[in-house]
Design a binder for these strands. Structure first.
Lengths: 252, 252
DNA sequence: AGAAAATGTGTGATAATTTCACAAAAGATG
DNA sequence: CATCTTTTGTGAAATTATCACACATTTTCT
């Protein structure tokens, strides 16, 4: 596959769906015809499907996150992308890691290197995404009741399941953070799961875009002292980042 | 939603993707414009996405089965559809059931009534499909390693997980059957899982299209005596169906 | 190195599809 | 029953896709 085609693929994967005119503007070094042919090529390889006036990412599990939660998710897409890229750089080969549910985690899944990894996750859509798009990682899904809102599982026996799994690095997402309340989420089940993960992982990396700073959700699952690193985006206020660092947390 | 729109939706869900001309021929009582407007309507509700000259089912998990296994799956689509419809009729409300992995099971998932059901499955794509498209069923995913080929999980501790789950009816798929070898599949892990399910379920219903009769795969997981009912399609030879009945198995 | 072949790219004509505005028909409301 | 709203059909106009061919670039072979 050519470099241009790779680039187009990546662009569409980031955006979800694009119009041809958008692509011709983005890749203005080439003619519309060439891009059109590239889309045809990429469609044949099942990387995307062509729509009326453009193309759309081949929706495997992607649609489950982006499609479900709706437009809201797309808005902070660039922030999350930035976070995902930074977080992916922290992933070492042959590591045993946990990947949380959520759209940021989905983006991280996409950015992961196609190498030997053991990836445990409670998000079946993310697990499927990885298994379909990469050849090398091993994916372990946690069992349990599948939650409609979050597309993640939670079971009464999570602790049992984690007992035989040794997780080195856990990538955890939060929906809210304030200094006084710590990291919080909207669901009770998620909260329990995240706590268990944090307790068992050697290293905890929190993924949180700046729009979630200074908001509080019903259930707190962690404090600053529980985590090792926070990956956030460039729009995060310097004051909060300084406070993180003061608490001994790495900030990226 | 109108009846015509429902019908179009169902038609597209069955076919996977369709052209507009195909639809105008199928729904010739209405004009192209009307159908076009219906597609727009259905797209807004995220039931499908419109493509160059037609529409395509909103691929949540569907693509995982059809997209992965390729065209082969589409071929026996009608047979599998027939089986799924027959099997769905066997599902009672408030039942605890198991749904196997595989494209026939996916179709059954689609045909399930949107009622109170506890559905345990090893196929995360099927679980997601159900949870996204229906409001009432509860889905329980079995945990374990996610297999690339089958998109199903298998864990060392399946037996532990099943211990606390009481499954009334298990819908199990087989990839091959002969009188001498019984029901067989291609993977060792699947084989173990299916055995465990069959051992624990009160009633076992086997789903198998006629193309799989008289073929042998590496691992046998059940004999006729293990199952209660076989659901197959109208192309199944009468002789085999008679043999099933002679062994005390219901045949639908 | 140079010719031949294969592949990739751009152009404009042609064909197909989609959109749009508006009129006709069907249904709802008082 | 008149009137308003919603749904449906029609054809023209705009947009988008396809195709054939010319030109450029890269690869292969002698």
């Amino acid at each position: 596959m050519k470099e241009r085609q790779e680039a187009i693929k990546r662009y569409i994967e980031r955006k979800g769906d694009v119009t041809l005119s958008e692509l011709t503007k983005e890749f203005s070094d080439w003619s519309e015809m060439t891009i059109r042919r590239d889309l045809e090529f990429l469609e044949q390889r099942r990387f995307l499907i062509r729509t009326k006036r453009g193309a759309r990412i081949m929706p495997t599990s992607y649609e489950v996150s982006v499609g479900m939660y709706g437009e809201r998710e797309k808005r902070n897409c660039d922030l999350k992308q930035e976070i995902a890229a930074k977080a992916a750089a922290l992933v070492e080969t042959d590591i045993s890691m946990y990947l949380d549910a959520g759209s940021t985690a989905m983006m991280l899944a996409r950015e992961l290197p196609d190498r030997n990894l053991i990836i445990t996750t409670s998000a079946p859509n993310i697990g499927i995404e990885i298994v379909l798009k990469k050849k090398n990682p091993t994916v372990i899904l946690l069992g349990g009741t599948l939650q409609r809102k979050t597309i993640s599982t939670c079971g009464l026996n999570v602790l049992d399941q984690l007992k035989t799994l040794n997780i080195d690095t856990a990538f955890v997402c939060a929906s809210g953070y304030t200094e006084s309340t710590g990291f919080s989420v909207g669901g009770q089940h998620e909260c329990v799961l995240k706590r268990a993960i944090i307790a068992s992982a050697r290293r905890v990396i929190m993924l949180m875009d700046s729009s979630k700073l200074n908001s509080i959700l019903p259930f707190t699952f962690a404090q600053l002292s529980d985590i090792d690193t926070i990956v956030t985006d460039s729009k995060a206020p310097e004051s909060i980042k300084a406070a993180f660092r003061a608490a001994g947390v790495h900030v990226l």
